[in-house]
Nucleic acid binder design. Structure first.
Length: 721
DNA sequence: TACGTCTCACTTTTT
DNA sequence: GTGAGACGTA
């Protein structure tokens, strides 16, 4: 197979330029994934490079897996030894082997943002910092930025000596790092930070990897931070075969510490660097590209460039203004239905919004209209309470020194070990410079723990029983034992509510995740399982295999494409977000986000806004988004006139009102299957089936939040929507 | 120690 | 509108 076939001149050049530094400026839809995959295949096939000597970094696991599959698709064989992964997974892999060189144990655990928050609160309590004066989130953010910039606590404090506030932050930072180390835990930023530290302090380890990675590629380079830049340049120092791909117009993570200078200054850093621009777009119609350009050209801080395409001009951009968010959602639903009747599939549509809170109304409308949909983002599976509980058990089993997890489970489910006991144990631990676990393990030594001693003992015995089996049985089985023995499962079963049942379902889902993990080749044990799942994101689970509309934030949509895209909430204060309008740089980032959104569309784009919107409990009347106003009016078509408003229900909830019903009234049964109803406790749902029983009806309802529920109509007090 | 009530805050978030 | 966390009471 000819690896260069079907590539344009620039793409070919990028594939064949294998030696020396290379910067690929790849516009949206210009085929950069194609270039990267062909480049890897070219290295292996044409240049006889051993796959193990290639390192390709992507930003999500999903992108990594796709790239792997595509390379294997081209080569027709598996090239397992390739390192195609995210920054974080690659670093974890390195650290698992060598982290003992910088004083951690190799069985370290990874703390997610919730763990980070708990830990930071602990730190603040310990040094008496008032949470009202120092918002834990802001402190965490400052620490995270510092780590991105490779600034350690002592340097942070020196840098900020004159500023009292920053000095306090520095103290918290120092304690936070100390506690992480005591827990043998790393947060996300540490994973990169300590890999770099490992390399800098251990030249032999650095050389090992410098030698191994002869060819390095980094995707989405515009979103890398300073730490990531350093990591890459350290690794690439020896062979200098570094290829980065990015687009400064699609940089949307500056707020998280991404450093745009990485891509803008790449040419300065690597003097002999070759620069290739991919400017031909293969994705979108001319109209969509023009619209995208008419928006992005308003940014001052950008290198001017313009994408072009040979694609058809295509349909005009559809503009719609609803009275409120309900009308907006109804419009989207009716357009989807209309287009589906003309041959489109549900999977051809994406509905994008600025923030997750906007998804609810759209969801409600889709349920009512029977449109299948899938949401990316929102509450992550691994952030659910029941999942976090189970995982906390596993983490303590893996690493009893992990006090954050220990504190989470020591009284969950309740076993009479309250906060008093815990506080005492914590104090002893801090005096003895020992872990809490070791303290409660030998609670009989401490008179202040005497009262809880037997409870503590049985807790520790349970944990140790698990520890004993962790290497004997697969993870899935271990989870089974944990939920059984700990009482987590029986607690939920006892509750016997819809919610509890759905929690049990989620735990079962976790067990199947573990089974999947075990099915992987050389999957490893508990430690690998925990590391793997702490590095997954929501988008990783998204696939377009099933036929449903996808709902997600504009951020999540990056890297994806859809035939039809709706961008909703095009209002000042929503998009651009109210927090960004006062700052030019933030506003420009919002505009790039808009550019990303527009360029997701292949054939048809809708820009939708509402005159009024209720968000966070208050209603506001917003102006049309400046981004929508920036789109050349020649490209727009007013869909308020042409829309296919047909049979679809067009009022808001308020317009219909809620009809009051009293409990013992005989149900006036004008309900039928498929009706949308509201229940006082369970919320909005849809009637799945109705069965007549004696003088009443048994109704089965799928509630949006609480799942499936069978109710007697007489008592259910259902209200039709 | 456990549970109920009150208050507040609330963008985006590849890992 | 909603959920998490703090705080106070039985």
């Amino acid at each position: 197979m000819d690896l260069l076939k079907g590539l344009n001149k620039e793409q070919k050049e990028a594939v064949m330029h294998t030696e020396g530094p290379l910067l690929i400026l790849a516009g949206a839809g210009s085929g950069k994934t194609r270039v990267l995959t062909h480049r890897i295949a070219y290295l292996i096939k044409e240049k006889n490079v051993n796959p193990g000597r290639i390192l390709a970094i992507t930003f999500t696991n999903k992108a990594a897996n796709e790239m792997k599959e595509r390379v294997e698709g081209i080569l027709g064989e598996t090239a397992k030894d390739m390192w195609i992964s995210t920054f974080h997974s690659a670093c974890v892999r390195i650290l698992r082997r060598h982290i003992d060189r910088i004083g951690f144990k190799r069985n370290f655990v990874i703390y997610d943002s919730a763990d980070q928050k708990t830990l930071i609160q602990d730190c603040m309590k310990e040094i008496n910092v008032n949470e009202r004066l120092y918002d834990p989130k802001a402190v965490l953010n400052a620490i995270s930025r510092a780590k991105d910039e490779l600034i350690e606590p002592d340097r942070y404090m020196k840098m900020n000596e004159s500023d009292f506030r920053s000095r306090v932050m520095g103290e918290i930072y120092a304690l936070y790092q100390k506690k992480l180390r005591l827990n043998n835990a790393l947060d996300f930023d540490d994973i990169l930070f300590y890999t770099i530290k490992l390399f800098i302090e251990n030249n032999d380890v650095l050389q090992l990897f410098q030698n191994q990675f002869r060819y390095i590629m980094v995707d989405e380079y515009q979103d890398t931070n300073t730490a990531q830049y350093h990591l890459v340049s350290l690794l690439a120092q020896k062979h200098r075969n570094i290829c980065v791909v990015g687009d400064d117009d699609q940089s949307i993570y500056l707020f998280r510490g991404a450093n745009i200078r990485n891509i803008l200054d790449f040419e300065k850093e690597f003097k002999d660097c070759r620069v290739i621009k991919l400017e031909q777009n293969y994705r979108s119609t001319q109209t969509i590209l023009k619209a995208a350009y008419s928006v992005i050209r308003n940014n001052k801080e950008r290198k001017d460039k313009k994408l072009w395409t040979q694609n058809i001009e295509g349909e005009k951009i559809k503009s719609f203004e609803g009275d409120n968010e309900h009308a907006e959602a109804v419009f989207v639903a009716s357009e989807i239905k209309h287009l589906c009747s003309k041959g489109k599939n549900y999977r051809d549509f994406a509905v994008l919004y600025r923030m997750n809170a906007q998804s609810r109304v759209i969801e409600d409308t889709f349920i009512r209209e029977g449109i299948p949909y899938k949401i990316v983002g929102g509450l992550r599976f691994y952030d659910r309470k029941e999942i976090k509980d189970v995982l906390a058990y596993l983490r303590v089993i893996q690493n009893p020194g992990d006090t954050i997890s220990l504190k989470r489970i020591i009284n969950t489910p309740r076993r009479g070990i309250g906060s008093t006991t815990l506080e005492r144990a914590e104090e002893i631990a801090s005096i003895n410079e020992d872990s809490i676990y070791n303290v409660i393990r030998s609670s009989n030594l401490y008179p202040e723990l005497q009262r809880a001693s037997s409870k503590l003992d049985s807790f520790c015995n349970m944990i140790e029983e698990f520890t004993g089996m962790k290497d004997q049985i697969p993870v899935s089985e271990l989870i089974g034992r944990v939920i059984e023995v700990s009482g987590l499962l029986s607690e939920l079963e006892k509750e016997d509510t819809i919610e509890a049942n759905s929690r049990i379902e989620n735990i079962k889902e976790l067990i199947s995740v573990a089974l999947e993990f075990e099915a992987q080749e050389n999957s490893g044990g508990l430690e690998d399982f925990l590391a793997q799942i702490s590095l997954v994101s929501d988008i990783d689970g998204f696939s377009d295999k099933e036929d449903s509309v996808v709902l997600m934030t504009l951020h999540s949509a990056k890297g994806l494409e859809f035939p039809v895209v709706f961008i909703t909430g095009m209002e000042e204060g929503v998009f651009p977000s109210y927090r960004s309008v006062a700052y030019e740089t933030q506003l420009e980032e919002e505009r790039r986000l808009c550019y990303v959104g527009i360029t997701r569309a292949k054939e048809l784009l809708y820009l939708v806004n509402a005159k009024s919107r209720t968000l966070f409990g208050s209603t506001s009347f917003n102006l049309v988004s400046r981004f929508k106003e920036e789109v050349d009016s020649m490209l727009l078509e007013d869909a308020n006139r042409t829309s296919s408003k047909g049979s679809v229900f067009t009022g808001g909830f308020a317009a219909n009102g809620f009809i009051k019903q009293t409990k013992n009234e005989k149900p006036n049964f004008d309900f039928c299957e498929g009706d949308m109803v509201v229940h006082r406790k369970f919320g909005v749902g849809i009637i799945v089936s109705i069965e007549e029983v004696e003088d009443d009806f048994k109704v089965e309802i799928q509630f949006r939040k609480s799942g499936m529920k069978r109710l007697m109509a007489k008592y259910a007090n259902l209200v039709k929507l």
